[in-house]
């Protein structure tokens, strides 16, 4: 792998890992506060899987550049994170959290599916392993969208409000990184435009079948992962507070 490709791959793995880490953080804020005990367990389980994926992506990066995953997670500043804005948004209500997880799962399943044929074997292997978990997530969140979308007027209203708020943000998942075309050319990652097409068709159909209105006025669509929302600073202040509390600590 030549140096520009390697650097592009490092950037891509970082973005993938950051997305999973921050999403897991928001999901885990629900622990102990879910509407039903069984769903508390299910969401904690999803958070755990996403955190596991973050660890895998940081690990693949580490194999390329020797970086320490914990340093990346706990000692990087907000401006250096490369997650999408969607995953930073405050957890909102149950509809907001489940919709975000659904939109993300739908993207992740399609992306992982495509990346199974990556020319970079570690990526292909990791994707194959994750795909089973992600399909389970998607099945779970997909069912929630239908149940809340077709439940009461109140639950439909909340789902629609969540969708209005997230639809523009979700599009960012398909904005390639500046050097991502290099990776696509090498067959290391799929072309996001193709993934997006499949995602749009799948999600719009399911959302509409669930009684939700689409298309929407797009609203704000983030175009770069170098900028974040106002929420990331505080999220990281919380997330990194223990690790940074004792900078001399070698082992946690």
């Amino acid at each position: 792998m030549n140096e520009p490709v390697k650097q592009a791959l490092i950037a891509k793995l970082t973005a993938l890992a950051d997305d999973e880490l921050i999403l897991a953080h928001r999901d885990s804020e629900w622990v102990g506060h879910g509407p039903i005990l069984e769903e508390d367990i299910a969401l904690a389980n999803i958070a755990q899987d996403e955190l596991g994926h973050a660890t895998v992506w940081y690990g693949l990066r580490s194999a390329l550049d020797g970086s320490d995953p914990d340093q990346l997670a706990f000692f990087r500043d907000a401006t250096a994170f490369r997650n999408s804005e969607l995953v930073e948004l405050p957890r909102g209500d149950w509809a907001f959290t489940l919709l975000r997880q659904y939109l993300f799962d739908a993207y992740e399943v399609l992306w992982l599916h495509a990346v199974q044929s990556s020319t970079y074997p570690p990526l292909a292997e990791a994707a194959a392993k994750m795909l089973r978990e992600e399909r389970f997530h998607l099945q779970h969140t997909q069912a929630w969208i239908e149940r809340l979308g077709q439940g009461t007027a109140e639950s439909n209203r909340r789902m629609q409000a969540a969708l209005d708020g997230q639809w523009g943000y979700a599009q960012q998942l398909f904005v390639p990184l500046p050097d991502e075309p290099l990776l696509v050319a090498e067959g290391i990652v799929p072309d996001l435009a193709e993934v997006k097409e499949a995602w749009l068709s799948r999600t719009t159909q399911h959302l509409q079948n669930s009684g939700l209105r689409l298309p929407l006025q797009m609203g704000y669509q983030p175009t770069t992962r170098e900028i974040h929302t106002e929420h990331l600073w505080s999220l990281l202040a919380e997330m990194q507070s223990t690790a940074r509390w004792d900078p001399e600590a070698k082992v946690w």
Binding site: S28, A44, Q48, M239, W252
Partner: peptide
């Protein structure tokens, strides 16, 4: 969980609470 100081500890704690 949101304040665990390492990825490993965070994972262990989510699993425990679950």
């Amino acid at each position: 969980i949101t304040r665990a100081p390492s990825l490993k500890r965070k994972m262990i704690l989510i699993a425990k609470v679950q």
